[in-house]
Nucleic acid binder design. Structure first.
Lengths: 345, 345
DNA sequence: AACGTTTTCTTAACCGGTAAAGTCCCTATC
DNA sequence: GATAGGGACTTTACCGGTTAAGAAAACGTT
């Protein structure tokens, strides 16, 4: 890409106008000692008159801070658009970046290996000051890679998967358990779960928690399937669960996100089943979507925006040298709405 | 932000290892003439052995290309998460950037003025090689500002609002007309439209087109309201439209996005109205959402992903010096599904 | 008054590349 | 055999900042 900015005001021009050296201007703009109040003022005045602000690229190259945070999302581009979760998450991240005058460098990658390469080149090229890593899986190569590079990162995921990295996470196991218990208390004995991508760490965690809850509650039936998080997959999974003979099919289904729950709801309607009388549905993530359907969707509600914000704040802490830590954010809480009720019989 | 990359391989190390000057390495990596095949190979080999890749920051500062595209979205951070449109659009942009090894610099801004300032600092600081501008309004200050700066941009919006900037746009007026005609042909005589943000150019355009269509078709009733694009607002608007006495309320409603249409659908259900028998609903943008509801939503369907991709491609053309142009992308086409039908009476 | 300290600012060397101008050598030409 | 013309590199001067080291003036001390 080539194309030249028209007028260029540099530190030199400011220095000349204020009658000082560029070193002095630099000192002033970095709030470093060694300048009298008078010259400091003169410099700021000159800068304001010329409309100058330090060039971040040059500043970065010269070896100081980098005001950019990296985020690579591993997903085929076509699917990204469909996940309300990420949009909310990103907006939470942005809300913190904005107040620190930082920007987000966003990139879609096809797989973890590609992400490792990307993070490495970002960091070595000083394109980012740190990164937010998401979608951890078992034996995630990013743990070792970022450690080796010295790249400051915050890992969004359960410590079981994020190794020694500073992490921000929700206690999904507890949430799944709560969800299943709630449905059991309502009287459901045959419960299914439509999970997300099997490769992801938190999916595995939820799967294990679901199994455990089903066993400890001695449920009569417990099914689990994994999908790709898309509405289509969620709908398909629901259809297959609900086509079993009525005495043998789940009376309640838990979904791993809200898009799939919406799809499930529509499949139930299309099959002539009444929600919640014939089957109860429970969503996850709880974006605005859950309040827009009819009936409204009960959900494991979760402040995704706040989750993103916390991740960003934690990253800043890491960058400024804070040691590794584990930052749980509030566990998703059950928000009952219109899609859950005791089973009909 | 401070934190140092551990090992640093620079062009100098590569040059030393290949036994050439750093100028030669630069020539090799930029595929410029003036080097023998033999040395070229030696240089690439050395680079590979050392795991070196040119530092983009330095490269940028030295005045060549910038591999970053800017995108500022003007919206309160909390709302961004709710718009499937942007997520899809961004994913389309990414799909083109990814194949050119470029990244997207994303930033939320509170208002257009803030965006103007941001774009200016991005450009002057060579943080971006060009930008994608969205959400044009009447007398948009960005037209003049980007022209003055010489910032290469692609404007996503109708030429009526984007001044002399190269634009990528959909013919919303024609689409609105088609939507209204379609409903009229089905037999609807009282049609309403729940529009987006009033300040936006394309909203104004759609409003005018709707008025015009209503007049030319001599509809018995035509209502229009503007909202903030949120599901809540869409639901509210729908409720207020449908509470009129039945002989005097719309039998069809057109929405400016899909979230509002989904909300409208649920409001209708909640009011005991059957869709499409009692009222027909027609969405816009047509994300996956429209196929997940029951009944499925008819929509003015539109390849938003492709729209984003086209915007990105056009930006690259602008950056490489192509003169101003106007690039219409296909007009949204009506995709009838389950939410539209002739009125009951 | 001579001398060590500060304070205040300047100089100059980077950061890691790019690119124009310069050097050297090899070959074709008259 | 002298000269012009290229090809293949190297030199060197930036890009726009930061920062360590140096210098000049102001200040306090004995």
């Amino acid at each position: 890409m080539t194309a030249q900015p028209t007028s260029r005001v540099t530190i030199k021009d400011v220095a000349a106008r204020a009658g000082v050296s560029k070193g002095a201007v630099s000192l002033a703009f970095n709030h470093k000692p060694g300048l009298s109040e008078a010259t400091r003022d003169r410099i700021f005045l000159a800068a304001r008159e010329l409309g100058w602000a330090p060039n971040l690229t040059a500043r970065t190259l010269a070896g100081s801070r980098v005001d950019v945070v990296g985020l690579a999302i591993c997903r085929p581009a076509r699917l990204l658009g469909l996940e309300p979760f990420y949009m909310e998450f990103v907006s939470g991240v942005e809300s913190v970046l904005i107040e620190r005058n930082c920007s987000l460098l966003l990139r879609l990658v096809r797989n973890v290996e590609e992400e490792v390469g990307l993070q490495e080149s970002w960091w070595r090229g000083r394109q980012v000051g740190g990164s937010i890593l998401v979608d951890f899986r078992a034996d995630d190569p990013r743990v070792a890679a970022t450690g080796r590079l010295g790249l400051p990162v915050v890992a969004v995921g359960h410590p079981a998967f994020t190794g020694g990295l500073t992490s921000v996470w929700t206690d999904d196991a507890t949430a799944v358990t709560e969800a299943v218990r709630y449905l059991a208390v309502l009287g459901h004995r045959r419960i299914a779960r439509v999970g997300g991508a099997a490769a992801l760490g938190h999916t595995a965690m939820r799967t294990a928690a679901f199994d455990e809850a089903a066993r400890s509650l001695e449920l009569a039936g417990a099914w689990q399937v994994t999908t790709d998080y898309s509405g289509e997959a969620g709908g398909r999974a629901t259809r297959s669960l609900l086509t079993a003979p009525s005495a043998d099919r789940p009376t309640a289904i838990v979904y791993d996100n809200d898009i799939m729950a919406v799809a499930g709801l529509s499949v139930a309607a299309e099959m002539g089943l009444n929600v919640p009388r014939d089957v109860s549905l429970l969503a996850w993530d709880d974006s605005q979507l859950c309040r827009l359907t009819h009936p409204t969707l009960s959900a494991m509600s979760h402040d995704v925006h706040g989750f993103g914000a916390e991740a960003a704040r934690t990253l800043f802490a890491v960058i400024t040298g804070e040691g590794p830590g584990s930052h749980p954010v509030p566990t998703p809480v059950l928000t009952p709405r219109g899609s859950t009720a005791p089973p009909a019989v």
